[in-house]
Simulated assay, not measured.
Amino acid sequence: MSWIGRLVAPVVVLVGLAVKFGGFSIKVFGVFLAVGGYALIWGWEFAVGFVLLIAVHELGHYVEARRQGLDPALPVFVPFLGAYVALRNAPFDPWRNALVSIAGPILGGLGAAALLVVGELRDDRFLLALAYTGFFLNLVNLIPAGPLDGGHVLRAWKVLRQGGGRARPEDARRLGRVVALLAAGTAAALAVGMFAAHVPQDRL
């Protein structure tokens, strides 16, 4: 039964660290758990690249929230589900929340675009595959449903469109149009990036 011990031991260590160091350990070791989980599917190199793409996406949320003077928590990685950035003590503001939500796909798309450029210059199919995955990941996050970034953007847009969230309803509706254009433009740019990064089978 020694194999059971080898499986259980890391879990016991992680639980002990979580008890000793609290939430910070969950954030740190969540990254390693995420890499390990994805490596089981795609191999460690792709797993590391994939998690870094997620980190860049979450950094977009974090940086925008800090820019607005909010108090975001560090990104928390959840293996096989992704990651999230929690806003602490932040009252709902549709305009600010929309910007924080869109910032993730925007910075994530820029990260994928950097991989695309380097991959094309070096004719590196691995980097192109990562770039394609990055564009796809961020585009999916803009689907206007559920807990995805697009779902948060949709809820903020609905409030603004109805004239809420600002002292003057006309200002709210104007910001709502900006949110819609920004979300649509980001989604279109990500789709173009996917098309550009796609590697045909005859090039694999």
Rank of each mutant, 00 (worst) to 15 (best):
S2E: 04
A9D: 02
P10W: 13
V13C: 08
L14D: 04
V15K: 01
V15F: 13
G16C: 07
A18V: 10
S25A: 15
V28P: 00
V28F: 15
F29M: 12
F29A: 08
L33Q: 07
A34Q: 10
A34P: 02
V35G: 01
V35D: 02
G37A: 12
Y38A: 08
A39S: 12
A39H: 09
L40V: 09
I41H: 01
W44L: 10
E45S: 11
E45C: 01
F46Q: 06
A47T: 05
G49M: 07
F50I: 12
V51N: 03
L52H: 02
L53K: 04
L53I: 13
V56C: 03
V56K: 07
H57R: 11
H61T: 07
Y62I: 12
A65K: 11
Q68A: 10
G69K: 05
L70Y: 11
L74G: 03
V76M: 13
V76K: 06
V78F: 14
F80E: 03
L81T: 01
Y84H: 13
Y84W: 13
N89Q: 10
N89M: 03
F92G: 01
F92M: 05
P94M: 11
A98W: 11
L99P: 00
V100K: 02
I102K: 04
A103S: 13
A103I: 14
I106E: 04
G109T: 08
G109V: 12
G109P: 01
G109E: 08
L110C: 10
L110H: 04
G111K: 10
L116E: 01
V117S: 01
V118R: 11
E120T: 15
R122W: 10
D124T: 09
R125C: 02
R125Q: 04
F126V: 02
F126I: 02
A131Q: 05
Y132D: 00
G134I: 08
F136V: 13
F136S: 14
N138E: 05
N138Q: 05
L139W: 15
V140W: 09
N141M: 06
P144I: 06
L148C: 07
G150V: 12
G151W: 10
R155A: 14
K158R: 15
K158L: 15
V159L: 12
V159R: 07
L160P: 01
L160T: 02
L160V: 06
G163P: 00
G163T: 06
G163A: 04
G164M: 09
G165D: 03
P169E: 04
A172T: 03
R174N: 00
G176H: 10
R177A: 14
R177H: 05
L181Q: 04
L181Y: 13
L182T: 13
A184C: 03
G185T: 10
G185D: 06
T186L: 03
L190Y: 09
A191R: 07
V192N: 03
V192M: 07
G193S: 06
M194Y: 09
F195Q: 06
F195W: 15
A196D: 04
A197F: 07
H198W: 15
H198K: 07
V199N: 03
D202H: 13
R203V: 14
L204H: 02
